[in-house]
Nucleic acid binder design. Sequence first.
DNA 1: GTTTAGCAGTCAAGAGAAAAGAGTGCTAAA
DNA 2: TTTAGCACTCTTTTCTCTTGACTGCTAAAC
Lengths: 337, 337
Amino acid sequence: MLEERKKQILQAIIDEYISTAEPVSSGALVNRHGLNCSSATIRNEMAELEKAGYLDKPHTSSGRIPSAQGYRFYVDELVKEDDISLEEIRYITSKLETRVNAIEDLTKIATSTLSEITHYTSVAIGPQNGFQNIEEVKFVLLGTRMLMAVILTDTGIIKETIIKFDEDITEEQVNTLNFIFNNKLRGKPLEAIDKPLEEYIFSEMNYSLAVIKPVMEQFNKVVNEESKVYLEGANKSFELPEFKSLEVARNFVNLLDTKEMMLDLLNTGFAKDINVYIGDEKENKKLKDFSIVTFKHRYQNKDLGTIGIIGPKRMDYSKVISVMKYISKKLNEKESE
Amino acid sequence: MLEERKKQILQAIIDEYISTAEPVSSGALVNRHGLNCSSATIRNEMAELEKAGYLDKPHTSSGRIPSAQGYRFYVDELVKEDDISLEEIRYITSKLETRVNAIEDLTKIATSTLSEITHYTSVAIGPQNGFQNIEEVKFVLLGTRMLMAVILTDTGIIKETIIKFDEDITEEQVNTLNFIFNNKLRGKPLEAIDKPLEEYIFSEMNYSLAVIKPVMEQFNKVVNEESKVYLEGANKSFELPEFKSLEVARNFVNLLDTKEMMLDLLNTGFAKDINVYIGDEKENKKLKDFSIVTFKHRYQNKDLGTIGIIGPKRMDYSKVISVMKYISKKLNEKESE
DNA sequence: GTTTAGCAGTCAAGAGAAAAGAGTGCTAAA
DNA sequence: TTTAGCACTCTTTTCTCTTGACTGCTAAAC
């Protein structure tokens, strides 16, 4: 465990580095943070903090920058979790009070608000299919050869899809579809459509394979479809000094542009309310210079997706975590509409 | 008008610059392009082409690069419109043969194929609402207090939206909504919902303002909603040498990240099949280093949106235009499903 | 009249060298 | 345990010099 003064100094160094992006010198620390000692004392402490692995030095005669371990300690022990102003609280509240019809719109609003307040790039994905149960299925005839299938789940997420046919569909067939699908699927998880069920439905409707086959195909497609990725404020990151490096900028664009990577980053590890991954803690080389902070959008204990920030390793963790905590709480409290 | 040899030289210079991204010298031209004269002759011609405004020189003793006017001449007069291989034709054909249910999926497939073949970043937007007519409107009850409204237009685009209510909705009310909306809106343009119509509907359903008001509100929202922007291969651009400049990279991300800008760029000027905007011809400073090439996704003379490429000013116009022509033709020919 | 060889002139880019500046680490004294 | 002081280190900036790639021009050749 670190002594109190070491903690103070480590905190001051990281705070300073977060705001300046420059290696922090002993002199600067004494000047700008009210530490009651001389720069020489700081230097001694810094040397010890470096030996213990909390700090790094780009070269012999430069100031210190936080190491991965330093950031980790900062996030776990030193972060302020109420670094949010009254004005920001008001802004967030007003944004989240917007009346939405589709639940995904609320995720989008939360994501863009998060980016606006933190000035970092934010991302979101919808809930994973595996955790949703089917509440109702409805088939609607559009024209004569087209059906829309609507699936309502217990999270409030509504999935719809179009199915086209080579022959006309009768109202009676639509009714049968509605009856069978609701009977068999209500209350089941979204991924419930397995082989036995498929065979049952086939046998029930065997009078018209031309109808049931496209339906099953499209249904399977919707159920297995991966979630959408929402992105907000990608350009904000390009104002950061670290983006002067071509490699950093390229890795960033690469990350954001690869959907599978984004899904992977946002979909793992939710031991805590707020999850922080510093640098390549996630075993992804492209993340070397970035950190990711995520939380689950929950409402009445139901999972409505994941919202996160992707920013530089030296991101303002206190601000990000405070704002996320607040947004998360507000989303969870939001009254049903 | 330019003499034949000047044209040849200009073409050679631009081709060379497109592939190397380096200023082109008189010597390089003689070596790599079979021109039957010495470098001194080329130098004389180059000097004249520069005087006429087709070429620029970064500094006194450097090779030449094309000017905006040079690119314009190249695109208008020198471009090869069949710069596409058999293999590419096969690949495009197989991609576009994918059976899709929602028409937007076809736009997405075309957009990603375009990016794959050209190795540039491609973008697409859906059709503007103003050009679509309503073919059918359908309200579907989901649960007891939620409706889904489905609007089918004559382009085959299907728009759906959720409407939530504070009180239960009866089947009878749904029927009335279906009857009134279809009666009044069938065949009308999507933007047909004006004040008189709104008042008519209100009076027809005045027995329950709590029902009709949310419906009208949401309907208006859908109809006035701006189109989605699809993006493919943003990271491909970051491999280009011009992206070593921070300013270029930043402008690019800024463009892509600003939806209004993208809509604006893709939504104007369709005098020709394929439209080319070189640099800031579109009066947008951020476009200074980029060119945009677009075409309308048309099917049976109906507008299904716009697809485009955004790349460096020195993009391979011949390839891009050839591939676009082919994709455009294939999309238009695609048989109805 | 057009083309070409030849050469002087220009400029960018790269390689050192030198100087300036920012910080550290260590020592010895407080 | 803290601090002043100073030597030392390493980056950054600035200059200068050199190299090399081109051009433009002139005068001769075709």
